[in-house]
Write a protein that binds this DNA or RNA. Structure first.
Length: 308
DNA sequence: TGACAGGGGGTGT
DNA sequence: ACACCCCCTGTC
């Protein structure tokens, strides 16, 4: 039996809470390593989602962010989208509290990516994404997420590029999935981490919710007790999935960025993290995202130049 | 066009 | 320090 036809999508509507932006900044915002579920559709729009929500995004000719969603989801938008994109009023103007006045490099980064926000994603989905991230690039992590969703996540009631759209599997669903089936989603050695974490979460109802609510230090300690979660992954989950802007994930990009821009050659991740918290303050995670974006762009520009 | 390294947004031992 | 898995990318 053929799938039922996809219901209609709403007309494109402006999201009033989003300041005008540029295509490259929108790409950095939703596809720059905070989230792994956004892709282009046949028309070049962004398509993505979280939980049971999915929608399309594009900029209108004035650079205003517009969205279109399956009609059934319309009542829950734009509030959910505003929160997801980190555009709630409480998050406005936070960059001004960063020490850019005394840090010329940070000032450059802020200027290069005006309006960049920390996303506010579902906690459990963020954990899944970053459990997959070890020694993987964004494109590969997105591939794992897409396979996990297609094979183990519930289909939602609409199609993207002619394919039914699936939400990510819940942790309860992952607990029912064999490690071999996870491996088949190109997870490699990460399959065991996810399998073990899923079993643990299934055996400890409420544990994830309590972790999300806990104070930063306690939440990080709890996350680090999970299989496959170290300091870097824990900080990513807390930053991008719980709005903890004090979390300062140190990955190889940040290691390189601080070595090069702040003279921290040879410093170890833990030392760099300590420097970050001391130098950038309680919003260190926000600063981190700007440094990260800046360093990635610099690397891609120099590699493009290096080619003939 | 097709192999073939090399390396990749870490964690665990 | 290394292994872990294995896909992507650049290169020949």
């Amino acid at each position: 039996m053929p799938p039922s036809p996809a219901p209609g999508w709403t007309a494109w509507a402006v999201l009033p809470s989003a300041p005008p932006t540029r295509p490259d900044l929108l790409a950095e915002q939703i596809d720059g390593g905070q989230a792994f579920r956004w892709q282009r559709d046949d028309a070049g729009n962004w398509v993505g989602g979280w939980n049971d929500l999915a929608l399309r995004l594009r900029l209108d000719p004035h650079g205003r962010l517009t969205y279109s969603a399956p009609v059934a989801l319309q009542p829950r938008l734009p509030a959910a989208l505003t929160t997801y994109l980190g555009l709630d009023p409480a998050n406005s103007g936070l960059t001004d509290a960063l020490p850019w006045r005394s840090d010329a490099h940070l000032a450059d980064c802020l200027e290069a990516f005006p309006g960049l926000r920390i996303l506010r994603q579902p906690f459990g989905e963020t954990l899944l994404g970053f459990l997959c991230s070890a020694t993987k690039q964004i494109v590969q992590i997105k591939q794992m997420m897409a396979l996990l969703a297609r094979r183990h996540g519930a289909p939602l009631d609409f199609a993207v590029n002619g394919e039914p759209w699936h939400r990510l599997p819940t942790w309860a669903e992952l607990a029912q999935t064999s490690e071999a089936d996870l491996r088949a989603c190109l997870l490699g050695f990460r399959a065991r981490y996810i399998h073990q974490t899923a079993r643990f979460l299934a055996a400890n109802p409420g544990w994830l919710e309590a972790t999300e609510q806990a104070p930063y230090a306690e939440a990080k300690e709890r996350l680090c007790s999970l299989s496959g979660v170290g300091e870097k992954v824990a900080d990513c989950v807390l930053l991008f999935g719980a709005g903890r802007l004090e979390a300062f994930p140190v990955d190889t990009w940040i290691l390189k960025a601080l070595a090069r821009r702040y003279g921290l050659d040879g410093w170890k991740p833990g030392q760099v993290a300590q420097f970050g918290r001391a130098h950038f303050g309680p919003l260190a995670g926000l600063a981190q995202q700007y440094l990260f974006a800046y360093e990635r762009r610099a690397a891609s520009e120099s590699s493009r130049q290096g080619k003939k």
